[in-house]
Design a protein around this nucleic acid. Sequence first.
DNA 1: AATGAATGAGTCTTCATTCAT
DNA 2: TATGAATGAAGACTCATTCAT
Lengths: 198, 198, 198, 198
Amino acid sequence: MPKVGMPEIRRPQLINATMEVINEVGLTGASVALISRKAGVSAGIINHYFGGKHGLLEATMRSVLKSLGTGITERLRQIPSDQVIERIKAIVEGNFAPQQTESKVVKTWLAFWSQSMHDHSLYRLQRVNERRLHSHLRGELKKVLSTQRAEFVARGVAALIDGLWLRGALAPEGIQREKAIELIRDYLAREIELTEVH
Amino acid sequence: MPKVGMPEIRRPQLINATMEVINEVGLTGASVALISRKAGVSAGIINHYFGGKHGLLEATMRSVLKSLGTGITERLRQIPSDQVIERIKAIVEGNFAPQQTESKVVKTWLAFWSQSMHDHSLYRLQRVNERRLHSHLRGELKKVLSTQRAEFVARGVAALIDGLWLRGALAPEGIQREKAIELIRDYLAREIELTEVH
Amino acid sequence: MPKVGMPEIRRPQLINATMEVINEVGLTGASVALISRKAGVSAGIINHYFGGKHGLLEATMRSVLKSLGTGITERLRQIPSDQVIERIKAIVEGNFAPQQTESKVVKTWLAFWSQSMHDHSLYRLQRVNERRLHSHLRGELKKVLSTQRAEFVARGVAALIDGLWLRGALAPEGIQREKAIELIRDYLAREIELTEVH
Amino acid sequence: MPKVGMPEIRRPQLINATMEVINEVGLTGASVALISRKAGVSAGIINHYFGGKHGLLEATMRSVLKSLGTGITERLRQIPSDQVIERIKAIVEGNFAPQQTESKVVKTWLAFWSQSMHDHSLYRLQRVNERRLHSHLRGELKKVLSTQRAEFVARGVAALIDGLWLRGALAPEGIQREKAIELIRDYLAREIELTEVH
DNA sequence: AATGAATGAGTCTTCATTCAT
DNA sequence: TATGAATGAAGACTCATTCAT
């Protein structure tokens, strides 16, 4: 019998190494040699566990998106569905949770965003994630805004989130969580209150 | 006898081919062979005119950012400095001018954004451009908002612009100019009017 | 407690899997991984039973040649040594027995023939087999032909047998047993009768 | 302008190196590294001229078969169509011309025969060649034999030719031209004379 | 006896760059 | 100015083998 339980160790280990390498040298520079060296294993092991470099990249992207998604879902689960403002706040704050806004994660996310335009399997993952965020936002907003307005504001919030991530990826100081949240909170306050007044 | 004026022909020709190749296969897939074939010239010529692949990429990024910048500057030149709202509109609309929001341009822009995190010369170009946008926005906003508030809103508008570009890069329909402008217009209206009331 | 009698099960199982894989993808494509998967066992087991891939290939070739040889020997044992024509017929028909002319066997045989030119241990196996066929044929033919003529005709029959196998390996319809036997029978009839007349 | 006329030099140079390497280590051992080293050029050049290893192998096989084919065609061109025996002799002798029966050529031919069972493009080349030989033989034989008999004897001659090549590939002394021709000549003499008598 | 995790050498291929022409 | 022949390093991947379990 071979060593058991290795997949559960190796897979996250390699995914993490991938993110670190992308953080350091970018997706272009992320070779299997570099990734496997970072993980402290041989290059061949990537094929063993992921069937090739592409499988590893896909798994890495899936991991990034999934942890974003579950972070938000968990937050939402703790808030009653009638506390709309709180739920929207949870979605926004989930996008800016400390674990998510590490340089490593943000740069990997952006690298994959760029790459997904030319890679079908990455594209599908990206779209699924994008739609989930939009649908969460619109769902909550529809409780306090018209359907049309909810759609409009959801697009605004999504653009702000992604824009702040994008700019944070480039900025030396990274994503500034407090400022980002405040900016979106301000946007929502104006959009929702103004409409509510009428 | 060398043909004269060739640089003026070859350089834009190769820069354009670069953007088209990036549009088709991404920065990862943009090889010298592909670019030169697309331009209808030999591979060696890139070294002749740009000193290497990196020189060509840098020139291409410079071209993308410059045409964005000049588009906005030209628009601003035609509007008196006291017509604040018009000037801000010009900045926003300059970022969503038809020439700028072609798929080719947007994908190239995003590819370079991602790449600039790991390439010093691309990074410098990116930062210069980023600061110019921010400074333009803040400059105008300060005419109608407090310094602090102007800074805040400028960051919001910049995030919206970049976020909408980012999302447009991935969306099958590309950037939807009208909707993007309307979304930012709405944001500005609320930020500025509310403040003006006080 | 180890399972007993496993070698008797595993060895033929793996040899057969080897022939099937060679039949499907050729000797070039016959990897340990493919063979062991075909046999339904793990890759490591090949080393256990054959000491490595080469040992398995050698055993497979030995198996192909041996079953050819024993098929002929058995047939000869049933025919008195003075029934020359019958004995020669037995040698020929033994080479075209249904079990031997399966696509799987023929392709494996040819792959090894080609390979044996560059592999000493396969070469030795091949030569032993070749000489046995030749010596069988010549031995019978000497009973009805001069030594010199017997040698000549034996070479002719051997060339026809191998040529028909070779061509059968490539032909979509495989080796056509009846036609092959008839062709050699015809050759022998002319060679032997003509000489006998004189 | 680059060096001109290089393709005419490099292509045969690499094809010849391929045959020499196959002669030495077999098709399995014929790596691009070995072939290019034998040719005294870099490995990358194979892609430049043949688009990859497979292209080189295909070109090599084509070269082997073509020189066999043209050798025979040239001989036939010099013999009037009514000199049947001479024409058949030309076909046979063309197959055993000194240039064709070099170890290098014979081993390459056999390696490709074996490989063509698992490679579609090699298979097509092989079949075309096989049919041409058969059709040449049958065409001539029909001038002196019945259609049915011509077909039968053509298959016999083809089997003898291929069988003698096959055995020559393995034999330390290689193909023995004189003996091979004499063997086939003898076969034909009996088949044709006997029939002609009746 | 048997597994499959792990390795490292080796495979083909791609690629930016150089250079003779 | 422009070509494309040529290189050599680096890429991803394959594979036979070893070994702990």
